[in-house]
């Protein structure tokens, strides 16, 4: 047993100082592509390389919708005119009202009831395992979500936040609805990952929804495929009213 004490002490403190200080260690995020103005006469064929419609062409720009990005890197590799890439991770945003969120309960102040501590129930609705693995990393010494007053709870009855990963597979629909119904109010839903936001490469189909917003009302969305732990932390901080959301419009460096 003494071995564990000694080896534990030898490793020392590993925790990131995010959100107080930005975390810039290489490899903490897969990043996202960035939009740019169209050059004169350019048709922007790089847009057509995107398999999920995350890139769009407007009159003067190539616009990136991070909610659809599945990190296939088609817009930066093997093309003569690659997009630029940003290495950020503060990607969380309030869910757009309309198609995807049935009836978001969000008022103007997002975090008022949750400023001190937040209990999170994680639900897997057809996830590939990567998003879930990144959620798991939140408890490791590097991210240590407890230091921020966030806790993973085993039951929805004690949960403030329902963190949902995966595209909303049909056979998880009823379990997900029941978990949401079991939560006391006020409650929030955090959708994590491109699949949870839009169905990703799987939905919509007869077995999959076009994102979990069609099953439970989503309040905050974290794009990424999977979003890195820091992006998920940013989502939780946003729900708690302790962070600013990613500016709307496009991603800039």
């Amino acid at each position: 047993m003494a071995n564990w004490v000694y080896s534990g002490l030898r490793i020392g403190v590993k925790s990131t100082h995010y959100p107080r200080v930005p975390e810039n260690t290489p490899g903490v995020t897969p990043g996202l592509p960035m939009g740019r103005p169209l050059r004169s006469g350019e048709v922007g064929e790089v847009v057509d390389r995107c398999p999920t419609g995350a890139l769009k062409r407007t009159a003067h720009r190539i616009v990136v919708d991070p909610r659809h990005c599945v990190h296939c890197f088609q817009c930066v590799r093997g093309t003569p005119d690659p997009l630029r890439w940003q290495e950020g991770y503060e990607w969380a945003r309030r869910a757009p009202s309309g198609n995807h969120s049935a009836s978001s309960t969000l008022g103007e102040s997002l975090g008022a009831p949750f400023a001190r501590s937040l209990h999170v129930r994680v639900v897997d609705a057809g996830d590939c395992g990567a998003c879930l693995r990144e959620v798991k990393q939140l408890s490791n010494p590097y991210y240590n979500l407890h230091r921020l007053g966030f806790f993973i709870t085993p039951t929805p009855r004690q949960a403030d936040v329902l963190l949902v990963v995966g595209p909303g597979s049909d056979q998880m629909r009823s379990a997900l609805e029941k978990a949401y119904a079991a939560m006391p109010a006020p409650r929030r839903v955090l959708a994590v990952g491109a699949c949870a936001l839009t169905g990703g490469v799987f939905g919509p189909s007869f077995m999959c929804s076009d994102g979990v917003g069609s099953i439970v009302p989503v309040d905050v969305e974290v794009p990424g495929h999977p979003p890195p732990p820091l992006a998920i932390l940013h989502g939780l901080l946003l729900i708690a009213g302790r962070a600013q959301e990613m500016p709307s419009g496009e991603m800039r460096p």
């Binding site: 290489p26 490899g27 903490v28 897969p30 990190h71 296939c72 890197f73 990567a130 693995r133 999977p226």
Partner: peptide, 14 residues
């Protein structure tokens, strides 16, 4: 992090 820094993706996608 090693995978992320080297290949661009932590789970080697893409």
């Amino acid at each position: 992090r090693l995978c992320g820094a080297l290949t661009g993706h932590r789970y080697l996608f893409g």
